[in-house]
């Protein structure tokens, strides 16, 4: 009876959600207590309650900031991922391309985005969204390219041999074997890219000229000693990042159902 009830409870709540929520709650409570007991100044660390209050008061401004920064993050995420996948797939088809691209990908993957942001501003105009999009797309491109190449190569020899025994043409081998086998890798890249694209978009905000972008807000609010305001913006960015990650996770569960959990 109790066992049945327990499994029922487990079914309602995904097993990982409850401990994670409890941990987060404990951290918030501890944070609040520490700030109050030791009377820590807001410049160092504002209390969560103060951040929450500012957050609620600032909702319209934060939404505008997220629209500006989130749009660049999302566009860069989609375009960079599509590009990385397309080039990765082409590299699988043409061996020469692959051998040339993998080292290039590794080198470019190590380039700090902070360094590319001013360059893209110069090239595409600081007041154009495309300079921000380009920074994000570049960050996202190489992990996706590398994972696509790895994923498309991941089909086992015995599976390839099976397709060969059916005399399956190249196109069908790709569609029915290589592509499905690559999906877990592709989603691995998407999950990493979801977080990266928000970071990259904010970093490019710092260099860009959009007056209502999230990165610009953090910069000016800090300069104006509005510390809870910048923290509230950071929280808003976190929420946006989680949303994007959640969307990817949902899409993964739907399209890679055989890799449960």
């Amino acid at each position: 009876m109790t066992a049945a009830l327990l499994t029922e409870v487990r079914r309602l709540r995904p097993p990982s959600a409850l401990p994670a929520a409890l941990t987060a709650l404990a951290v918030l409570v501890a944070w609040e207590v520490v700030v109050r007991v030791f009377a820590i100044r807001p410049i160092l660390l504002p209390a969560p309650s103060a951040i929450a209050a500012t957050f609620v008061a600032d909702v319209p401004r934060l939404v505008r900031a997220l629209v500006v920064t989130g749009r660049a993050a999302l566009l860069g995420f989609v375009l960079g991922s599509l590009g990385g996948f397309a080039v990765g797939a082409a590299a699988t088809r043409w061996r020469v391309l692959r051998e040339g691209l993998i080292p290039v990908g590794v080198v470019f993957g190590a380039v700090p985005i902070v360094a590319t942001a001013p360059i893209f501003n110069l090239w595409l105009g600081a007041l154009s969204i495309w300079s921000n999009v380009a920074v994000v797309a570049l960050v996202v491109f190489f992990p996706m390219m590398i994972n696509t190449i790895t994923g498309l190569a991941s089909a086992s020899d015995s599976h390839r041999e099976l397709m060969r025994s059916y005399a399956a043409p190249q196109r069908q081998v790709f569609a029915k074997l290589l592509l499905p086998a690559s999906l877990p890798f592709v989603f691995g890249a998407l999950r990493v890219s979801a977080a990266l694209s928000v970071i990259a978009a904010v970093v490019s905000d710092f260099f860009g000229g959009f007056r209502d972008s999230a990165g610009f807000f953090i910069k000016t609010l800090m300069a104006n000693a509005d510390y809870t305001g910048s923290w509230a913006t950071v929280v808003a960015l976190c929420l946006f990042g989680l949303l994007l990650y959640g969307a990817v996770a949902l899409a993964e569960r739907w399209s890679v159902p055989w890799k449960e959990q």
Partner: peptide, 15 residues
């Protein structure tokens, strides 16, 4: 497609 083959491992597609 005159023959069908069964390998030592089942080689089914997980997906």
């Amino acid at each position: 497609r005159d023959y069908g083959m069964v390998f030592q491992k089942a080689t089914l597609f997980d997906w």
